[in-house]
Design a binder for these strands. Structure first.
Lengths: 189, 189
DNA sequence: CCGTGCATGTAATTCGTTACATGATTCC
DNA sequence: GGAATCATGTAACGAATTACATGCACGG
C-alpha cells in the first residue's frame, strides 16, 4: 500500500511536504501552476485527502482560529513523509516513460525540495537513459513500419518521436546544470 | 452524445473505420503499435465495444465461420462513421493541448485515412497555433515565477516547455509536407 | 493429450469528472 | 443586505485496471 497511489495523491503529498495546507489551498495551488494538469475540482481533492488520511499519510491539524471561518488544514505524518520520499526515489521505468511521462516530470518537480542535487542528477540520468532506449525502439519501428503508414499516421508518430528527442536533449542539458549544483552543494557541507 | 466519448472509444472507431475487426484483433492492434499507449486489457476493450454498440456506432457482423472458432467482428454503422468524422474534424482546443495532447496526436494519426491532406493541413496548423499560444503563456509564467522555483521544479517546467517547443517545430515541418501533398492531391482530381 | 494461442468476457476496485449542495464571512 | 469568495463536501456517473473465468482448437 502506498506504491499504488494515484498521481494526484502524490501531488498532494508533495504540496503538503512544503507546508501545511487545507483542501482549498491545495485546489488553489493546482489552479495557479500551469504545470500539473489536474482539475481543481473539489470532487477529486477532498476524496483524495480522505484516502491519504485513511492510509495514515496525512493528519488534520487542529487549528484554533479565533476569527470564525471553518478550515481544515493537513500536514504530513512521518509515514506520509516516508511514502513521499520512497516515491521520489523510485527509478523511472520504461513503462512510466511510455505512458506516464507527466508523472515522471512531476516527480522531478518536487525533488529538490526533499533530496540533494546529486539525487536529482541520478534521477535525470536514469530518465534520459530510459528515454533514449525507448527512442531506439521507436526509430526501429519507424524504419520497418513507417513505409506503409498513411501520411498523417507517420506525422503523428514523428511528433511523438520529436517529443522524446526533445526530452533527451533537455535531460542532457539539465544534467550539466545539476552537476554544477551538486558540486556547489558538496562544497557547502 | 458522442462528443464525450473516451479516447479509447474513438481509437476503436478509428481502427474499425479501417476494417472490420473483432475485440481480439483490436487488442492486438494496440499491442502492436507503440504509439497509442493503451493497455491491451480485455477489461477495457470489451466494455468499450459494448458502449459503442449501445450508442449505435458499431454493429456486430454475423459471420458464418464454417470452421469452429467463435469470433465476433464489428463494423461501423453510418452513425459511427459520422461520429468518427466529427471527432476528426473538431478543432484542437487549448484545453486539449494542455491536458490531452496524446488524444490530439492520435486524432491526427487517423486523419489521412478519412480526410484529404488539405484537412490534415488545417488541423496541424490549428494545433500549431494553439501550442504556440500556450508556449507564450508558459514562457511568461517562467519569467515571473521562475526565479523563486527550486532547481528541480524549474527543470521540470522547462522539460514541459521543450516538449511544446518541439511540437511547434514539428508542426511547422509537417505543414510543409502536407502542403506539398495537398498540391499533389489537388492535381490528381 | 497437453500446452499455447485464439477469443470472449465478468467482478471488484479505484479514480476522476461534473454538477450540485451548503454555509459562513468579508467587503462594499 | 447582497455579491464575491472562502471552504467543505456529496452523488451520479463513466471509465480504466487487475485479476479471474471460460472454453475451443490446433500443433506437436
Amino acid at each position: 500500500m502506498g506504491a499504488r497511489d494515484s498521481t494526484l495523491g502524490f501531488a498532494l503529498l508533495g504540496l503538503l511536504h512544503q507546508a501545511q495546507r487545507s483542501g482549498y489551498d491545495l485546489r488553489k495551488a493546482f489552479t495557479a501552476t500551469p504545470l500539473a494538469h489536474f482539475r481543481d475540482s473539489p470532487g477529486a481533492i477532498y476524496p483524495a485527502l480522505r484516502r491519504l488520511r485513511r492510509q495514515g499519510f496525512i493528519e488534520p491539524l487542529t487549528e484554533e482560529r479565533p476569527s470564525g471561518r471553518r478550515r481544515q488544514a493537513f500536514q504530513l505524518t512521518p509515514a506520509g513523509r516516508r511514502a513521499f520520499l520512497a516515491w521520489l526515489q523510485a527509478a523511472p521505468t520504461r513503462d512510466e516513460v511510455v505512458r506516464d511521462m507527466d508523472a515522471l516530470v512531476m516527480r522531478l518537480g518536487f525533488m529538490s525540495q526533499a533530496l540533494p542535487a546529486s539525487a536529482v542528477l541520478s534521477y535525470v540520468d536514469a530518465l534520459r537513459a530510459e528515454v533514449e532506449a525507448y527512442l531506439v525502439e521507436l526509430e526501429r519501428f519507424l524504419a520497418t513500419a513507417g513505409g506503409q503508414m498513411p501520411l498523417s499516421a507517420r506525422l503523428a508518430f514523428e511528433s511523438g518521436l520529436e517529443g522524446f528527442r526533445a526530452c533527451a536533449g533537455w535531460a542532457t542539458r539539465a544534467r550539466r546544470r545539476l552537476r554544477e549544483e551538486a558540486r556547489k552543494e558538496g562544497r557547502r557541507e
